[in-house]
Amino acid sequence: MSGTSLARGFRVEANVVGALILRELHTRFGRANIGFLWIFGEPLLLAIAVGALHSAQQLPLTGAARSVPFAIGGYALFIMFRSMVSRAETLLEANRPLLNHRFVTLFDMLLARALLDLGSTIAVLALLLPLAWLVGYADLPEQPLLVLAATVLIGWFSFALSMVVMAVSHESAFAGRLVHPLLYLSMPLSGAFFSVQWFSPGVQAALGWVPTVPIFELLRMGLFAGYPADHAELAWPVTCCALLTLLGLAGLRAVRPRIEIN
């Protein structure tokens, strides 16, 4: 009995999230010109621009690392992170009326956005990396599964953080205002644009505590043959993701009864 009703719950939730994704596509991009294809266009343009900027650069890296896939991969994942976390603050304002529907929860809204961002990022990578290879600025990813794993991990981290951000910014508008400056500050620290190898051992040890840094190292292990695995220890990032998820879920649960719908 409880099993079947749980299954029904899953089905309903899946429908809700699916519907939210479609709604998100329309509200964010509309139906004009290429419509929701812009979800690819946005990161695509940014990644191409950044890749072009870095195309002439020679990276001080061992192995078969090249600058264009380095930049594309880092930017694509960082854009996903920024998109998920920065929109979490305004999500509630934009979608407040939706909460009138009993089946729609805050979690569903965030999940829908996260899935959308994750899907578009994977699509952009799947498009851009082979494109860069065709043009001659990159080699094909050495281990595509690792690239995918890194993307999913950053997605998980961003989603967990977005839940926390949503809960916190609902409680304190001031904290919500801090999200954007903090996101900018996180840019150089995130590991999206540097390799841990470039730093002295002391700095490397400190960087290892930034949860996204090992994930970006994992991304490069997937992208480049012979990229050293020294700094891609995933225990700490996964622990962080799990704790943030717990914190976020609990936060959403705590915030939910206090949200004014009208």
Binding site: L6, G9, V12, E13, T105, D108, L243, L249
Partner: peptide
Amino acid sequence: TAFAIGWLLLAGVREHMA
């Protein structure tokens, strides 16, 4: 931690099955 996450997720799903 895993249990708490799982429980919270399931609780979320349960909200949809009422």
